[in-house]
Structure formats: C-alpha cells, structure tokens
Design a protein around this nucleic acid. Sequence first.
DNA 1: GCCCGTATTGAACCGTAGTCAACGGTGGGG
DNA 2: CCCCACCGTTGACTACGGTTCAATACGGGC
Lengths: 210, 210
Amino acid sequence: MTAAARTRFSVDARRAQLLELGLRLFAERAYDEVSIDDIANAAGVSKGLLYHYFGGKRAFYVACVENAAEALFERTLADPSIPEPERARAGLEAYFDYAEEHETAYMALMRSGIGNDPEVAEVVERTRTRIVQRALASMGMEEPRPVFRAATRTWIGAVEAACLEHLEHREVDRGGLVQMLLAALYGLLVVAKQLDPEAPFELGLPPRAD
Amino acid sequence: MTAAARTRFSVDARRAQLLELGLRLFAERAYDEVSIDDIANAAGVSKGLLYHYFGGKRAFYVACVENAAEALFERTLADPSIPEPERARAGLEAYFDYAEEHETAYMALMRSGIGNDPEVAEVVERTRTRIVQRALASMGMEEPRPVFRAATRTWIGAVEAACLEHLEHREVDRGGLVQMLLAALYGLLVVAKQLDPEAPFELGLPPRAD
DNA sequence: GCCCGTATTGAACCGTAGTCAACGGTGGGG
DNA sequence: CCCCACCGTTGACTACGGTTCAATACGGGC
C-alpha cells in the first residue's frame, strides 16, 4: 500500500502472493476488466515483475485458475479408510465445504475460460479428470473403463451444477442436495454396470434418506 | 474475399451474417486471439460497422453466444404430444443431435465465458433456466418449486457433462449415455418428491433398458 | 564491509479496441 | 427517368494496455 521501497521476496513467496491476489481480482472482475497495471499496483510491484514470473496475462490467468483447481482437488480427498457408500458422501460434503468457504474462488473457477481458450479449458478439465480417476480407483478400477469414466464424469457435472445452484439461491438445504446427488450417482452406476457387466465393481444398496 | 465494392445489406441480414461468422471464429480461436479487424476482414466489412451493430467486442461476443444458445434452446423443444416418460428421452436425443451436428458451436457455447464475466455467464445460465422452466412446466409445475428446480438444474449439468464427454472421446455409445442420464433423472426426481411431497407430480416407473 | 547473483524496475514499443465525421448506395417521389 | 434524402458504411485517428528489455538495487555470503 505505502509505496514501500523495493522489497525482495523469495521466488516461492512472491509467486504465491501474486497467485492469491490474482485469483481475488479475477474473481471480482472479468478478465479483460483487470489490467496488468491493476494487478501490479495491488501487489505493490512493477508490471515487469509479472512478466518475469509468468509469461503474460493469459499465462498468469491460467496459473491462478490452476492454483484454485489444485486447492479444490486436495480439499476433496476423502479419507480412504471410510467404506464406500459413505466415502462418496464424505467427499461430496468436503466439496460443498470448499465451495461455501471459498465462494467467489469456486465460482470464478467454474466460470473460468477465455472465449474457448483450450489452455484454460484444459486446466479445469484436467482437474475433473483427476477427480474422476481418484473416484474410480476408490471403486477398485485402476485401468480405463470407458463406461464408468463417462458415468463418473457425468456425475461431476451434476455435482457442479447442484453446487452452483446452492450458492446462487440457497433455497434447498444442502443435505437435500447431497441426497439427490447420491441418488443420481446410484442411478448412473446401476446403468453403468448393466452396460459393462465385466467391470470389477459391486453395486451396494441404494442410498437411504439418512 | 474479392474486395467487393461496398454492398448494402438489410439490417437483419447483416446482423445474422456477422453473428454466424463471429461464432465460427470464436469457436476456432480464443477470444483474445480474435481481433475486431479479423472479424471485419473475414466479413469483408469495416471495423466501424461492427461497432455500429454491436456495442463493442465484448457485446459482440455475448451476442454470438446468445445466438448459439437460442438455437440450442429451440432445437431441444420436445413434442408436447408425447407422454412424459418418453418425452424426456426425445428432448435428450434432440439435444445430442444438436451437439453432434454443431459440434464446434456446442463446445464453444459450453466453454464460453471471459474470465468470469457475469454477462456471458448470465446468457448461458438464462438458457439453462429456460430449459429447466420448460421441463418443469411439462411436468405440470408452473409455479416455482425450489426442490424440483434444483433437481432439474442439476440434471442439466449432468447432461452437459455427458454430452461433452461424448463429443470428446466417443467410446461409450450414445444410447448408453441416454440410459444413464434417464436413470440419473429418475433418482433425482425420487428424492425431490421425498423432499417436497406436496408437489403436484407423480413419479412414473423407473426407465427400463429399452 | 564489499561483491556478486538475481529479484525487481520503469520507460519505450506496438498491436488493437474504440471513436467519429464524412461518404455513397438505394429506394421513393416528382 | 432523374434527383434527393436517408441510413448503412467507411477509414483514419486516438488512447489504452499488453509486452519487451536493458538497467538497477537488495541481501546473503565471503
């Protein structure tokens, strides 16, 4: 804030500071309403420094998004000791927790993308893929199983939609949404198993209303 | 291409031409890689004309997205004479048809957004809302029913995800995806009805595998 | 206390979004 | 058939903001 004399940070500290600030700015205004100067000013740093750390504006934006995506991914890692019917619920609750606590960051992440820039799309899509992979592994499927991948990816879409709905107008309570999502997951998996009976996967009982 | 002398179009024709061209350009390259000059050149028109028809670059982009969204909306209007268990399937098939036939346009629409520009987000979100509304009306619910709105909106999320998955790597056949989505919808609606028993809505039988 | 590596700067460059007053094609009236 | 007026259209001009790069100064190590 005060035009402090040039202070020297470690590379990692500076990077982290810039990423955090960038995410906040990009969350509250649109991409092309945030200028490089804005970012530099807010960070108390020269424009050139941003170009030193990141390739350019686009690259900086991508890095910010990547940062948020990574946080979300780590945050939703459910405890592997929990048995499966409940583990999905735990992961789901963690997901909602993250979204509620970092509301603007979460929405910025979901609404990220510049035009249809493949690079940005890839960052968030890769995170989804990792979540899918992790989920499949927890069901005992390491090798690719197209039907189950599709089912899980589809479910992620539902989760994101429900979460956005929840954040925008909080009329339905969270528990209800979680129940709905688990029911949807069950439906998806039933059909997936029908379509790919060879899959090493045993369907449990349908989720009950608590 | 040929530097045709200044040709005069009707307002509507010109608008339509520019919107169609814009969508194509924005579909193949990212927002900030497409300059106003590019668009003007490709259209064989001066830059100023774009500013005459649309407020600016952002507004033009929004208009292009809106155009694609509208086309999708109209395309997925299912025949109201079909009874309900089959109507959802018909709407779903129409949705997939559109996505397959206009692959790049569909993906551009789904990946639209500039940073997290609220205006762009609103355009595509409004289209989703309209689809939701139409779906609820077809179930006999005109007035707002938060639980069912959430359920339907969630389902749209699943549909979009499944559709993108389908377009990207076509490993699971379309019929399978449709079956999964219908199962998910059934699950969502079962829980929705539990959460809001007053709703004037009778659940049919679960979808069968053809 | 000096010195060197490197984090950091700031001014200059340039592509591109946005503005505006003038131009000319087209269609209607004499 | 010609002229006029309206409005779709133009292109040069401006200013803003992303990008570059040679120069600068901070701070740890000797």
